[in-house]
Amino acid sequence: ATNIVGKVKWYNSTKNFGFIEQDNGGKDVFVHKSAVDAAGLHSLEEGQDVIFDLEEKQGKAYAVNLRIK
């Protein structure tokens, strides 16, 4: 899925991951530091509006192509 809109539920910059809540009511999506770095960001803030693509690997969904809304 592409261009999914959501809000950062939480992001832990020490542990380098967090979760994004989808605006469409879907399951929360894992986001890793690598996606944050690829977006040219240092971190994510709770409540921040983002747009992302959804990829699945080994049955787990995660956010890629992250951008600030």
Rank of each mutant, 00 (worst) to 15 (best):
A1V: 13
A1I: 14
A1E: 14
T2C: 04
N3L: 05
N3W: 04
N3H: 07
I4C: 04
I4P: 02
V5D: 08
V5C: 04
V5E: 08
V5M: 15
G6K: 01
G6L: 01
G6N: 01
K7I: 06
K7Q: 06
K7F: 09
K9I: 07
K9V: 05
W10I: 04
W10C: 04
W10Q: 03
Y11G: 01
Y11W: 09
Y11Q: 01
Y11V: 03
N12F: 08
T14D: 10
T14F: 10
K15R: 13
K15Q: 13
N16L: 11
F17L: 03
F17E: 02
G18Y: 02
F19P: 00
F19M: 06
F19Y: 08
I20L: 15
I20H: 00
E21G: 15
E21W: 14
D23K: 15
D23N: 09
D23M: 13
G25M: 12
G25S: 13
G25Q: 15
G26R: 15
G26W: 15
G26M: 12
G26E: 14
K27S: 13
K27M: 07
K27A: 14
D28N: 07
D28W: 06
D28Q: 06
V29L: 04
V29T: 13
F30P: 03
F30R: 02
F30G: 02
V31I: 07
V31H: 00
V31K: 00
V31F: 14
K33C: 04
K33R: 13
A35Y: 06
A35I: 08
A35D: 06
V36K: 04
V36T: 03
V36H: 02
V36A: 05
D37H: 10
A38V: 08
A38F: 08
A38I: 14
A38G: 11
A39V: 06
A39C: 03
A39W: 03
L41Q: 09
L41M: 07
L41T: 06
H42N: 13
S43A: 08
L44T: 01
L44N: 01
L44V: 05
L44R: 01
E45K: 14
E45M: 13
E46M: 13
G47C: 04
Q48K: 14
D49T: 12
V50Q: 00
V50G: 01
V50S: 01
V50F: 05
V50K: 00
I51M: 14
I51D: 03
D53Y: 03
E55S: 15
E55D: 11
E55C: 04
E55Q: 08
E55F: 13
E56Y: 14
K57P: 06
Q58S: 09
Q58Y: 15
G59P: 04
G59W: 10
G59V: 06
G59A: 15
G59R: 13
K60P: 04
A61V: 14
A61P: 11
A61W: 11
A61G: 15
Y62F: 13
Y62C: 04
V64Y: 06
N65L: 06
L66W: 00
L66C: 02
L66A: 01
R67I: 10
R67F: 15
R67K: 10
I68S: 15
I68V: 15
I68G: 09
K69Y: 06
